[in-house]
Amino acid sequence: MTKKELSQLYDLNREIEQQQNRLGELESVLQGKSVRVAGIPLSLDKEVSGCKSEILDLKELISLNMEKCWHEIKKINRFIDSVEDSKMRQILRLRYINGLTWQQIAFSIGEFDESYPRQKHNTFLKATENLENNC
């Protein structure tokens, strides 16, 4: 599994977060707490109907992306479970499932230097990718 594949969960979570923020803005317009949202016309009656439509679309999109997240979590966990080295499994889970920074990972595994888990991770992924390319 490549770093790009492993990073999909992180990217999906950021995308969902942005969509949820947008949903909150639109719901504020409907509740009269906000007068203007980017991309929505100024006319109030058009604004409300446009908001309702976009809210429904966003809720559906968020739901689809949440399903993708669960799929990615399962896929990443299967990959991590196949790793023989316990410390490497910890690093991969903390990074790709929990979304921790390298410094947080270092502290979690009893290290103080963030370069330790990063280097161990990079070496492992490079070896894994080389092995996959040679098969």
Rank of each mutant, 00 (worst) to 15 (best):
G39C: 01
V37E: 01
I91A: 03
K74Y: 13
D57I: 13
Q103C: 01
Q31S: 05
I62A: 05
H71E: 14
G99M: 00
Q90L: 14
L94Q: 11
I62V: 08
L44Y: 06
R89K: 05
M66Y: 12
S43V: 12
G110Y: 05
E72Y: 12
I80W: 07
F112Y: 13
L100S: 11
L30R: 06
C69H: 10
D81Y: 10
L92G: 01
I109A: 01
E111H: 06
I76K: 05
N77V: 01
T101I: 02
Q104S: 03
E84Y: 02
I80G: 07
S108L: 01
Q90I: 10
L94P: 08
S53L: 11
D81N: 07
E60W: 09
D57H: 14
W70M: 14
L58E: 10
R93Y: 03
K52Q: 06
R89A: 02
R93Q: 06
R78D: 13
I91D: 00
S115V: 11
S49A: 08
S63D: 12
Q31K: 02
E47N: 12
K59S: 13
Q104I: 03
K46R: 08
L56N: 15
I73G: 09
L44V: 08
E67W: 10
R78Q: 13
D85V: 04
R78A: 13
I109S: 00
E67M: 13
E114A: 14
A106P: 04
L92H: 00
I76G: 02
P117K: 11
P117S: 08
S28F: 00
F107L: 15
A38N: 05
I105T: 10
L42F: 08
K74H: 15
E114D: 14
G110R: 08
I55H: 08
G39H: 02
C51E: 07
G99P: 02
E54K: 09
D81C: 07
R36T: 05
V37S: 03
E60T: 13
R36A: 03
K33W: 10
A106R: 04
E111M: 12
I76H: 05
W102I: 04
Q31R: 03
E54G: 02
N98L: 03
W102H: 06
V37D: 00
T101Y: 10
G39M: 02
G99A: 00
N65I: 10
E54V: 06
E72V: 08
L100N: 12
Q103Y: 05
Q31M: 03
M88Y: 01
S108C: 00
L30G: 02
W70H: 15
L64D: 12
V35D: 09
I97S: 05
I55S: 06
G110Q: 07
S53Q: 12
N65D: 15
S82L: 00
L64K: 14
F107Q: 12
E111T: 04
A106D: 02
G50E: 14
E72R: 11
H71L: 14
Q103G: 02
A106K: 00
L94H: 12
S28C: 02
I105Q: 09
Q104H: 05
S82I: 00
W70K: 15
Y116K: 15
N65H: 14
V37K: 00
E54I: 08
T101V: 05
A106T: 03
K68V: 10
R95T: 05
I109P: 03
E60F: 10
S49N: 09
A38P: 04
L61T: 14
M66N: 13
